[in-house]
Amino acid sequence: MRLIINLIVICMIAAGVGLGLTFLAVRHPLALDVIQDGAWEAIANEGGPDVDAYALAALAHRGEAPLSIADGLTFRASEDEDGNPLSGACSYVISGALPPVRVWSLSAFDRDGRPFPNPAGRYGYSNADAMRDSDGAIRIALSAEAQPGDWIPVASDAPKIMLELRLYDTTAAAISGGRSAPELPAIKRTGCRS
């Protein structure tokens, strides 16, 4: 009888450890096959047949369909250029040039992958509606309070913000084979509420 109880306890511990590690691997996937530029990260083969199991599990958990590697690349950022987590208590500016692409989009999401509800109905920008300077660079504010120019509103109490920059029909997808990222806009914190 003692042997059976020991086996049951061992099986329960093994199941708990296995499920716990699976949960961590899906919520915080290992950085395998990553392309990085500053705070931005992309999984090289996210939309290809050779995507690693951790990235595939994380995509399934988020309910997200990846771009085909032939269509483009998705870069994500959850930190600013200094390594601080993006938070609704702070304001940021996303600025700089984008790589040569046919279409791009930049959006902000909460920790559950949902866009932030706001009266303006503004959830992000694309190449069709973002203003650019004479060099073709963008300058988009990310803040809970209204900002002049291009502005993506977020919730002031959001503990975690995820930015997603999708580059469609781009040579950046071809670059992913060499694991080097194109130059992407910087994410700089401009201030925080105390």
Rank of each mutant, 00 (worst) to 15 (best):
D37R: 14
P159F: 02
A130R: 09
R193N: 09
I43N: 14
R122A: 08
D33Q: 11
R139D: 03
V51M: 10
H28I: 09
F116K: 00
R132I: 05
A53W: 12
L67I: 07
G18P: 00
I5C: 11
S180F: 15
L163M: 09
G113W: 06
I10M: 11
A128I: 11
A137I: 03
L184T: 03
R102Y: 11
V17T: 13
L56C: 03
I5G: 11
I161N: 00
A70T: 11
A53N: 11
N118Q: 05
A97T: 06
A77I: 01
L163W: 01
G88L: 00
A65P: 05
G136S: 04
A53P: 08
D80Q: 08
G72W: 04
A25M: 10
D169H: 13
T22S: 13
S143Y: 02
G149C: 03
R179V: 02
P117F: 05
A25I: 02
P185Y: 05
I13H: 04
D33E: 12
A58C: 06
A186V: 13
D80N: 13
A173D: 06
P49F: 14
I94K: 00
S194P: 13
D33Y: 05
S87I: 06
Q147R: 12
S126V: 05
S194A: 15
P117K: 08
A172Q: 08
Y168H: 08
P85A: 12
A130S: 13
N6I: 14
P182S: 02
S87P: 04
L7A: 15
E41Q: 15
S78T: 10
D157E: 06
L106P: 01
D50K: 13
E41D: 10
G72R: 08
R76M: 09
L32V: 13
C192K: 08
D135C: 09
W104F: 14
R122N: 07
C11T: 11
P100W: 03
G113E: 01
L98N: 05
L106D: 00
G178H: 14
A60S: 12
L32Y: 13
Y92P: 00
I4W: 10
G18R: 11
S87D: 10
S176M: 12
V9M: 06
G63Y: 06
D112N: 15
G121W: 00
M12Y: 04
R114D: 11
G72N: 06
A57M: 10
S180M: 15
G191W: 02
I161F: 00
A181R: 12
A55V: 02
R114E: 10
A44Y: 07
